[in-house]
Protein backbone atom coordinates (compact mmCIF):
# COMPACT_ATOMS: atom_id res chain seq x y z
CA UNK A 1 0.00 0.00 0.00
CA UNK A 2 2.68 2.49 1.02
CA UNK A 3 4.70 1.46 -2.00
CA UNK A 4 1.98 2.42 -4.48
CA UNK A 5 1.50 5.77 -2.80
CA UNK A 6 5.21 6.47 -3.16
CA UNK A 7 5.20 5.52 -6.82
CA UNK A 8 2.28 7.84 -7.49
CA UNK A 9 4.13 10.77 -5.98
CA UNK A 10 7.22 10.16 -8.02
CA UNK A 11 5.25 9.97 -11.25
CA UNK A 12 3.42 13.21 -10.54
CA UNK A 13 6.23 15.34 -11.95
CA UNK A 14 5.68 13.82 -15.38
CA UNK A 15 4.02 16.20 -17.90
CA UNK A 16 0.64 15.08 -19.29
CA UNK A 17 1.64 14.86 -22.93
CA UNK A 18 4.70 12.69 -22.94
CA UNK A 19 5.36 10.39 -25.84
CA UNK A 20 3.93 7.52 -23.86
CA UNK A 21 0.77 9.41 -23.04
CA UNK A 22 0.23 10.50 -26.63
CA UNK A 23 0.22 6.84 -27.51
CA UNK A 24 -2.75 6.42 -25.18
CA UNK A 25 -4.78 8.44 -27.65
CA UNK A 26 -3.27 7.32 -30.93
CA UNK A 27 -3.06 3.58 -30.24
CA UNK A 28 -6.81 2.99 -29.87
CA UNK A 29 -7.34 4.82 -33.15
CA UNK A 30 -5.36 2.23 -35.04
CA UNK A 31 -3.30 -0.70 -33.77
CA UNK A 32 -5.31 -1.15 -30.57
CA UNK A 33 -8.74 -0.14 -31.79
CA UNK A 34 -11.47 -1.31 -29.41
CA UNK A 35 -13.81 -2.42 -32.20
CA UNK A 36 -11.63 -3.72 -34.99
CA UNK A 37 -8.76 -5.16 -32.96
CA UNK A 38 -10.18 -5.93 -29.54
CA UNK A 39 -13.60 -6.65 -31.10
CA UNK A 40 -15.53 -5.01 -28.27
CA UNK A 41 -18.73 -2.98 -28.47
CA UNK A 42 -19.90 -4.69 -31.64
CA UNK A 43 -23.56 -4.76 -30.66
CA UNK A 44 -23.97 -1.01 -30.50
CA UNK A 45 -21.72 -0.53 -33.53
CA UNK A 46 -24.22 -2.49 -35.58
CA UNK A 47 -27.30 -0.98 -34.01
CA UNK A 48 -26.80 2.77 -34.14
CA UNK A 49 -25.00 3.18 -37.45
CA UNK A 50 -27.82 3.42 -39.97
CA UNK A 51 -27.33 7.19 -39.98
CA UNK A 52 -24.43 9.47 -39.19
CA UNK A 53 -26.25 11.63 -36.67
CA UNK A 54 -27.12 8.97 -34.07
CA UNK A 55 -23.72 7.36 -34.63
CA UNK A 56 -22.06 10.67 -33.90
CA UNK A 57 -24.09 11.28 -30.74
CA UNK A 58 -23.42 7.71 -29.62
CA UNK A 59 -19.68 8.13 -30.21
CA UNK A 60 -19.61 11.39 -28.27
CA UNK A 61 -21.66 9.86 -25.45
CA UNK A 62 -19.40 6.86 -25.17
CA UNK A 63 -16.27 9.00 -25.27
CA UNK A 64 -17.59 11.18 -22.47
CA UNK A 65 -18.63 8.18 -20.41
CA UNK A 66 -15.35 6.33 -20.87
CA UNK A 67 -13.17 9.36 -20.18
CA UNK A 68 -15.16 10.52 -17.15
CA UNK A 69 -15.51 7.05 -15.63
CA UNK A 70 -11.82 6.46 -16.16
CA UNK A 71 -10.99 9.65 -14.28
CA UNK A 72 -13.43 8.90 -11.47
CA UNK A 73 -12.29 5.32 -10.99
CA UNK A 74 -8.65 6.31 -11.26
CA UNK A 75 -9.11 8.96 -8.59
CA UNK A 76 -10.85 6.45 -6.34
CA UNK A 77 -8.59 3.51 -7.16
CA UNK A 78 -6.65 3.54 -3.90
CA UNK A 79 -9.77 3.48 -1.78
CA UNK A 80 -11.81 0.88 -3.67
CA UNK A 81 -12.02 -2.43 -1.79
CA UNK A 82 -10.88 -5.01 -4.29
CA UNK A 83 -13.66 -7.42 -3.41
CA UNK A 84 -16.37 -5.04 -4.68
CA UNK A 85 -14.35 -3.22 -7.32
CA UNK A 86 -16.45 -4.41 -10.26
CA UNK A 87 -19.70 -3.24 -8.74
CA UNK A 88 -18.08 0.07 -7.82
CA UNK A 89 -16.94 0.48 -11.42
CA UNK A 90 -20.43 -0.39 -12.58
CA UNK A 91 -21.98 2.18 -10.26
CA UNK A 92 -19.68 4.91 -11.54
CA UNK A 93 -20.30 3.99 -15.18
CA UNK A 94 -24.05 3.90 -14.58
CA UNK A 95 -23.86 7.30 -12.99
CA UNK A 96 -22.24 8.83 -16.06
CA UNK A 97 -24.45 6.97 -18.51
CA UNK A 98 -27.62 8.05 -16.74
CA UNK A 99 -26.39 11.63 -16.67
CA UNK A 100 -25.62 11.55 -20.39
CA UNK A 101 -28.98 9.95 -21.10
CA UNK A 102 -30.83 12.62 -19.13
CA UNK A 103 -28.92 15.34 -20.96
CA UNK A 104 -29.72 13.82 -24.35
CA UNK A 105 -33.39 13.62 -23.41
CA UNK A 106 -33.35 17.27 -22.45
CA UNK A 107 -31.39 18.69 -25.37
CA UNK A 108 -31.57 16.33 -28.37
CA UNK A 109 -34.84 14.53 -27.74
CA UNK A 110 -35.31 13.10 -31.23
CA UNK A 111 -31.85 11.57 -31.30
CA UNK A 112 -32.29 10.21 -27.81
CA UNK A 113 -35.46 8.47 -28.98
CA UNK A 114 -33.60 7.01 -31.92
CA UNK A 115 -30.78 5.71 -29.75
CA UNK A 116 -33.36 4.41 -27.27
CA UNK A 117 -31.89 1.61 -25.19
CA UNK A 118 -28.40 1.81 -26.63
CA UNK A 119 -27.37 4.77 -24.51
CA UNK A 120 -28.42 2.82 -21.44
CA UNK A 121 -26.50 -0.14 -22.76
CA UNK A 122 -23.25 1.82 -22.72
CA UNK A 123 -23.21 0.61 -19.12
CA UNK A 124 -22.64 -2.91 -20.35
CA UNK A 125 -20.36 -1.87 -23.19
CA UNK A 126 -17.22 -3.91 -22.77
CA UNK A 127 -15.04 -1.01 -23.88
CA UNK A 128 -15.92 1.07 -20.83
CA UNK A 129 -15.57 -1.70 -18.28
CA UNK A 130 -12.51 -3.01 -20.07
CA UNK A 131 -10.69 0.29 -19.83
CA UNK A 132 -11.61 0.73 -16.18
CA UNK A 133 -10.34 -2.70 -15.22
CA UNK A 134 -7.33 -2.70 -17.50
CA UNK A 135 -6.15 0.87 -17.16
CA UNK A 136 -7.87 3.20 -14.71
CA UNK A 137 -7.52 0.81 -11.75
CA UNK A 138 -3.75 1.05 -11.92
CA UNK A 139 -2.99 4.48 -13.38
CA UNK A 140 -3.29 8.13 -12.46
CA UNK A 141 -6.33 10.24 -13.43
CA UNK A 142 -4.47 12.23 -16.12
CA UNK A 143 -3.33 9.33 -18.28
CA UNK A 144 -6.59 7.52 -17.50
CA UNK A 145 -8.50 10.43 -18.96
CA UNK A 146 -6.40 10.27 -22.14
CA UNK A 147 -6.86 6.52 -22.30
CA UNK A 148 -10.64 6.87 -22.03
CA UNK A 149 -10.64 9.65 -24.58
CA UNK A 150 -8.51 7.64 -26.97
CA UNK A 151 -10.66 4.54 -26.74
CA UNK A 152 -13.84 6.57 -27.09
CA UNK A 153 -12.43 8.21 -30.19
CA UNK A 154 -11.27 4.89 -31.57
CA UNK A 155 -14.78 3.55 -31.12
CA UNK A 156 -16.25 6.71 -32.61
CA UNK A 157 -13.96 6.59 -35.63
CA UNK A 158 -15.15 3.12 -36.60
CA UNK A 159 -18.75 3.98 -35.80
CA UNK A 160 -18.64 7.03 -38.05
CA UNK A 161 -16.96 5.11 -40.85
CA UNK A 162 -19.62 2.41 -40.78
CA UNK A 163 -22.39 4.98 -40.50
CA UNK A 164 -20.94 6.94 -43.43
CA UNK A 165 -21.14 3.96 -45.76
CA UNK A 166 -24.46 2.75 -44.44
CA UNK A 167 -26.22 6.06 -44.75
CA UNK A 168 -24.56 6.86 -48.06
CA UNK A 169 -25.26 3.53 -49.73
CA UNK A 170 -28.45 2.75 -47.84
CA UNK A 171 -30.35 5.99 -48.21
CA UNK A 172 -28.11 8.08 -50.44
CA UNK A 173 -27.69 10.70 -47.75
CA UNK A 174 -25.10 12.11 -45.37
CA UNK A 175 -26.25 13.57 -42.05
CA UNK A 176 -29.76 13.51 -43.53
CA UNK A 177 -28.85 15.52 -46.63
CA UNK A 178 -29.82 13.72 -49.80
CA UNK A 179 -26.52 14.13 -51.63
CA UNK A 180 -27.67 12.41 -54.81
CA UNK A 181 -30.71 14.65 -55.13
CA UNK A 182 -28.40 17.61 -54.74
CA UNK A 183 -26.45 16.78 -57.87
CA UNK A 184 -29.62 15.79 -59.66
CA UNK A 185 -29.21 12.03 -59.72
CA UNK A 186 -31.78 9.51 -58.65
CA UNK A 187 -30.42 6.94 -56.23
CA UNK A 188 -32.26 3.80 -55.24
CA UNK A 189 -31.18 3.11 -51.67
CA UNK A 190 -29.66 -0.27 -50.92
CA UNK A 191 -31.95 -1.71 -48.25
CA UNK A 192 -29.36 -4.24 -47.11
CA UNK A 193 -27.16 -1.44 -45.80
CA UNK A 194 -29.94 -0.32 -43.47
CA UNK A 195 -30.17 -3.76 -41.89
CA UNK A 196 -27.67 -4.99 -39.28
CA UNK A 197 -26.29 -7.38 -41.89
CA UNK A 198 -25.05 -4.38 -43.90
CA UNK A 199 -23.14 -3.14 -40.87
CA UNK A 200 -21.61 -6.58 -40.37
CA UNK A 201 -20.33 -6.61 -43.93
CA UNK A 202 -18.85 -3.12 -43.72
CA UNK A 203 -17.31 -3.80 -40.33
CA UNK A 204 -15.77 -6.98 -41.69
CA UNK A 205 -14.26 -5.10 -44.61
CA UNK A 206 -12.88 -2.41 -42.29
CA UNK A 207 -11.29 -5.03 -40.03
CA UNK A 208 -9.83 -6.77 -43.06
CA UNK A 209 -8.31 -3.59 -44.50
CA UNK A 210 -6.98 -2.42 -41.16
CA UNK A 211 -5.43 -5.72 -40.18
CA UNK A 212 -3.78 -6.24 -43.53
CA UNK A 213 -2.38 -2.72 -43.30
CA UNK A 214 -0.81 -3.01 -39.87
CA UNK A 215 -0.08 -6.72 -40.05
CA UNK A 216 -2.07 -7.66 -36.98
CA UNK A 217 -2.44 -11.37 -36.32
CA UNK A 218 -4.64 -13.08 -33.75
CA UNK A 219 -2.42 -14.79 -31.23
CA UNK A 220 -3.52 -18.11 -29.91
Amino acid sequence: MSETVEKVEVKKSEPLFTKKNKKLITNPLDIDNPITVQVLGICSALAVTTQLKPAFIMAVSLTIVTACSNVAISAMRNSIPSRIRIIVQLAVVSLWVTLVNELLKAYVYDVSKQLSVFVGLIITNCIVMGRLEAYAMSNKPGPSFLDGLGNGLGYGLILMTIAFFREFLGSGALFGFKVFDLIGLHYQGNGLMLLPAGACIILGIIIWIQRSMNGYRETH
Binding site: M1, I80, P81, S82, R83, I84, I87, V88
Partner: peptide, 11 residues
Amino acid sequence: RQSNSYIVIYA
Protein backbone atom coordinates in the same frame (compact mmCIF):
# COMPACT_ATOMS: atom_id res chain seq x y z
CA ARG B 1 -9.42 -1.84 3.03
CA GLN B 2 -10.61 -5.43 2.98
CA SER B 3 -12.62 -5.45 6.18
CA ASN B 4 -16.35 -6.05 5.92
CA SER B 5 -17.32 -2.86 7.68
CA TYR B 6 -15.15 -0.80 5.33
CA ILE B 7 -16.78 -2.45 2.34
CA VAL B 8 -20.29 -1.88 3.66
CA ILE B 9 -19.61 1.76 4.46
CA TYR B 10 -17.88 2.30 1.14
CA ALA B 11 -20.81 0.82 -0.76
